[in-house]
């Protein structure tokens, strides 16, 4: 939808940094969301997208709309956050989780606590659920999936995916070398792929804001892939402290394939388990 719109009428609005600061301050002071430390380049583009989609001529127009209709903020949050995701993105990573990471945790533990931080529409959660079913250890693993966007959480809970996305998901699944065919796990209804509901019946989907929220549990494995790329370095450091604190000692942290802990203050509390797949292990409290 966006790419067609974009392709046809790409308008780059003249958005100044001061405009963005006024917007983020307003949303932070009055609406409980904090975008002040988002990465400026992508945040500006997301705001530009909102101006385009809702036909605002400037950031001022957007600010006025939020002031007159506070509930509109939820839509803004939904558009600011990037919700493009795939099942089994980076198949070699998922093979690594199946073949090494989870078996390693199970060597020392009877059960595994997993947190999908910033789960978006749930594709990674579904991938994990399928992986666990194929390993035959669903009952031993507790999945918690969080996002700050209520509407995307509702979508995740429904576990439906537009059929047009399934071609890519199927390809990823084949590269992941799953033991079935992906089509075994869903059926098509009216242009959407409806996932087998039993896959996610024990998943706990919750609203949680990585930026403002606190520590709510301890985990053996935290997946936070391609979430912090939308934050600036300072915010990444803050969020990483929380992820670190949310891990048991010797628990695993997994970030996106082109993210790195190198520049982060907390790097010395982790060791690299797999650099290619960006799998880290907490070694210090």
């Amino acid at each position: 939808m966006w790419s067609i719109n974009y392709y046809g009428n790409w308008i780059m609005h003249n958005i100044e940094i001061t405009d963005l600061k006024r917007l983020t301050q307003l949303v932070k002071d009055n609406h409980g969301y904090d975008f002040t430390n988002y990465a400026m380049s992508s945040f500006r583009r997301r705001v530009n997208r909102i101006l385009d989609l809702y036909n605002f001529s400037s950031v001022n127009g957007l600010i006025e709309k939020i002031n007159t209709r506070p509930a509109f903020v939820e839509e803004v949050v939904n558009e600011i956050t990037v919700n493009v995701t795939e099942m089994f993105r980076d198949p070699s990573f998922w093979r690594e989780v199946r073949d090494h990471i989870i078996p390693n945790i199970l060597l020392n533990h009877q059960s595994v606590n997993v947190w999908h931080a910033g789960c978006s529409s749930g594709e990674e959660v579904f991938s994990m659920a399928i992986l666990l079913r194929e390993m035959g250890i669903e009952g031993k693993v507790k999945l918690i999936a969080t996002d700050l966007d209520n509407s995307i959480l509702d979508k995740a809970k429904k576990a439906t995916i537009p059929v047009k996305n399934m071609e890519l998901n199927e390809k990823n699944y084949i590269r992941f070398q799953g033991s079935e065919t992906l089509s075994k796990y869903y059926k098509e209804e009216n242009g959407v792929a409806v996932l087998d509901p039993t896959l996610i019946e024990n998943v706990s989907f919750r609203k949680h804001d990585l930026v403002r929220g606190g520590i709510f549990n301890k985990f053996d494995l935290v997946l936070c892939r391609n979430v912090m790329i939308y934050f600036n370095q300072n915010l990444q450091n803050e969020v990483l402290k929380k992820l670190h604190e949310s891990l048991f000692k010797y628990g695993y942290l997994i970030i996106g394939s082109k993210e790195s802990l190198i520049w982060c203050e907390i790097a010395n509390k982790f060791i690299v388990v797999n650099n290619e797949e960006k799998i880290y292990k907490k070694i210090r409290d």
């Binding site: 966006w2 790419s3 974009y6 392709y7 940094i17 990465a39 400026m40 380049s41 992508s42 583009r45 997301r46 990037v82 493009v84 995701t85 993105r89 391609n226 790329i229 939308y230 600036n232 370095q233 996106g256 394939s257 082109k258 993210e259």
Partner: peptide, 24 residues
């Protein structure tokens, strides 16, 4: 990198993004 958009950030650094494809 593959499957990421590459943005140049103010302050001379890069930011990556997985947002929607642009021009396919």
């Amino acid at each position: 990198p593959s499957n990421y958009h590459l943005c140049v950030e103010l302050g001379n650094s890069f930011s990556l993004s997985t947002e929607e494809m642009v021009n396919n």
